[in-house]
Amino acid sequence: MKFNRVLINDDHDAIGESVAQVLMSNGITNIEKTQYCDEAYLKIKKAELDQDPFDLLITDLSFKSDYRNDNLSSGEELITKLTQDYPDLAIIVYSMKDQLQKVRFLIKNRGVNGYVCKDRKGSKELGESLNVVASGKAYLSPQVCKALQPKSNMEIDDFDIRLINLLSKGMSQEEISEDLKSKNLKPSSLSSIEKRLNRLKIQFKANNTTHLVSITKDLGLI
């Protein structure tokens, strides 16, 4: 599949122009441009009614506020409305924003097909994204590609701290297991303690348990 008819929605002329150039260099010539989200929505709706629908929207997220009363004041609002009304329309976000959760939200909850970050490699990545999205996959710029990976585990809890404290007293994992069992604390099995400690070692970038103790001590955790 290849995109034939594309709408570019960006409030900066020069950017819109550069996007158009990327599209043209990829053999897409049926291009229209808008500078406001409301305008973009109306254009897409009209095209649908005229039975000449767009098959791709490339949009920014942030728009200068207008003196008119905007119904849709941000790219996110436009996307939300479009995914309800025209679920078949492909959408690539071309934005300066690189917050992971925003990207994750748009891809997972709003069905956005591509997310390209505006920077000096933006044009190149945008070109790449056209092919990837056309082939039915999602495209993300490298700096936000973490958004699709599972959320990294940052949290630790009181139990973790208890484990490290016991380690710092020079106890072995077996002794820790016994200690926890004697206090009726769970989990106390050797394997789950091992699992926890391995995770902590990764989180604290520790080579071994002694290292883990020394690192956490330096950080003031224990």
Partner: peptide, 19 residues
Amino acid sequence: EELMESYETDRTNIVVKGL
């Protein structure tokens, strides 16, 4: 969470307790 996550890189690990 998003803020902290965005500062977590290959180089830097972020650990959070009690958030």
